[in-house]
């Protein structure tokens, strides 16, 4: 159990899918795989730094790598676009079963108008199952600041879904930048 290789393999086996799910919602599959690979390489080299629970730490590393990659020129797709690309018939079927007020496409268009940071905030909590406190670690802010972010994001989400799809902002990159 003390053996670092064993502990690392356990870390990988336990968390790979969740880190990969996170990366897939921010980058294309090939890039996402490389990002996750790099994330675990960093985890090995910085093993002593990996927190407990490990997932927020791993997602924080993956997030930095994703940001860095965007800064490097190959601009990443934003979250709403990734959802669109990854959606299939099974998602439509599940959506219908859940009996939401709006159509899935309409919901997707509505959230696409939200700032990227709102989507990230909501995704960490609802998709990736993090406690707000843990999500705060991922994005590198205080828990209090994250609660504020989450509260605002929830409000904007509710408003967006209520109002229906809004036009996409003309300069998404700027919005994204401002949202960081």
């Amino acid at each position: 159990m003390d053996d670092p290789e064993t502990r690392f393999t356990q870390l990988y086996d336990t968390h790979y899918r969740r880190v990969m799910a996170y990366a897939l919602t921010h980058a294309e599959p090939h890039t996402a795989e490389d990002i996750v690979s790099e994330t675990f390489l960093i985890a090995w080299r910085r093993f002593g730094d990996v927190g407990d629970p490990a997932l927020p730490w791993l997602l924080g590393v993956a997030r930095n790598l994703l940001h860095k990659q965007r800064a490097g020129g190959r601009r990443g797709r934003d979250l709403a676009e990734r959802i669109k690309v990854l959606s299939g018939p099974a998602d439509l079927a599940a959506w219908d079963v859940a009996d939401h007020v709006v159509e899935r496409d309409a919901a997707l268009a509505a959230i696409a108008a939200l700032p990227e940071r709102d989507l990230e905030t909501l995704a960490l909590v609802t998709w990736h199952g993090l406690e707000p406190r843990q999500a705060a670690k991922v994005v590198g802010c205080s828990a209090a600041a994250f609660f504020v972010r989450l509260h605002r994001a929830r409000k904007r989400l509710a408003r967006a879904l209520e109002a229906g799809p809004a036009p996409r902002p003309a300069t998404p990159a700027v919005v994204r930048e401002a949202a960081r």
């Binding site: 990969m20 299939g88 998602d91 859940a98 939401h100 959230i111 879904l161």
Partner: peptide
Amino acid sequence: SESAFADLRPVAVDEMADDAFARRRDAD
């Protein structure tokens, strides 16, 4: 609205994560 957001998560994400795990584990 939050449950709608939760349901927007594509199921393909899990399948792709499983697939990547199987393919990449040893090399990673």
